[in-house]
Design a protein around this nucleic acid. Structure first.
Lengths: 211, 211
DNA sequence: CTTTTCGTCACCAATATTGGGGATTTTCTA
DNA sequence: TAGAAAATCCCCAATATTGGTGACGAAAAG
């Protein structure tokens, strides 16, 4: 039996889900709430295995509730259900610690399967959500820029200091070289990276991992 | 009808899948191969909607084949099937452009559903694979500290320009405000971020995504 | 053994940044 | 509608950065 708690402001949907899950032998419906104001209390009391969480609710958003719950009960699986499929919301939900993200469906079996998957495997993503997650993942790791810029060791060191926001003086001190030498290295770095300011150099250094 | 091509070195599995998919009205099995040496040729000839790709095959790995296919036929959906669930392989597969990743299953319906999902929604992830992807995603973005720095819109804009390495003059021009105003905004940004140089501000902006 | 690269240092001058004031207008909000 | 917040602008002065040129010793490469 999977212990489930539901947070969903739409009363119709909430009641339907409660009835459907409640009548199943696989689930133990521990609670169903219209908002997440007392989410932590509900979790503490009912100790659910899986929380079905609407993303948009009055008073407290599902994202905030997810953050709070995950902070105290990281083992509790949280399945976000929503009508929104925009990257920003998906991103936030994942970062808040959500274990799954499904789009609302008229078919209750979708919820049943998703809850089972989350409980058994730790996750569940609707196919279209999965597509967006993969796209974000790919774009984040698009390190296709393999522009080998041949920086010398000292130059890398100086550039590293620059990414920490150090001034010429501080760099000179840290690397135990003179101010003028730092200046020389910086000039060489700028020429190699084709930039003409510290900010640009730092951005490039971080972007294509030169440090 | 979804046009499908299979690359799978295990003859038993390949034949089973071919038979199962071939007997379905939803699929048009365009080809089934024991390795991916002629993958590009096969794709060019059969123009599949979905490619079912084993990850480990003799001669050419499924990952390499995926890269090659995606380079020339980015619209073709590629569904990786494997027995491996390690992060490294999942990571590589996603970065290679895979649209889905499922673990091998004795139940052919798993393949059927995954292929349909990939075709219809652009993606499909097994629940346990989804869990690993989410975990990687979360750890990559674990820099999302709870550091809410309340930058105003203009400040974000100016900071954004700084991450492009623009000087005060250029920012003034880009934002259509005076040099002095840029100066003021920069001062306020520095105070809010507790920094005192452009480099530091840029690093912080990138690190915890203020822009 | 010569040439190149790396790392070091110096000087000069132009420009940019930073930090400190103070001030006005617009926009939002209690 | 009064007060707060945001956005705008200006001045001054101290520092920092940037770009240029030139030079020297050591180490690596040819």
């Amino acid at each position: 039996m999977i212990r489930v708690v539901i947070f969903e402001d739409n009363k119709n949907l909430r009641d339907s889900l409660a009835m459907y899950l409640g009548s199943s032998e696989d689930f133990m419906l521990a609670g169903a709430f219209g908002d997440a104001r007392n989410a932590l209390w509900a979790i503490k009391k009912h100790k659910p295995d899986v929380v079905l969480m609407d993303i948009q609710m009055p008073h407290v958003s599902g994202l905030e509730a997810t953050l709070d719950i995950k902070k105290l009960y990281p083992e509790t699986k949280i399945l976000i259900q929503t009508i929104y499929e925009d990257d920003e919301r998906i991103f936030q939900a994942i970062c808040a610690g959500a274990n799954g993200y499904i789009v609302k469906s008229p078919d209750p079996e979708v919820y049943v399967q998703a809850i089972k998957d989350v409980f058994a495997s730790g996750s569940s993503l609707s196919p279209n959500i999965a597509a967006r997650v993969l796209a974000m993942f790919q774009s984040q790791n698009a390190t296709a820029h393999q522009t080998f810029v041949a920086l010398t060791n000292r130059e890398k060191e100086v550039l590293g200091c620059m990414t920490k926001g150090m001034s010429y003086k501080m760099i000179a001190d840290a690397c135990d070289i003179s101010f003028n030498t730092v200046h020389t290295h910086v000039k060489n770095i700028y020429e190699k990276l084709h930039v003409n300011s510290a900010s640009e150099a730092v951005v490039k250094a971080l972007e294509w991992k030169l440090v």
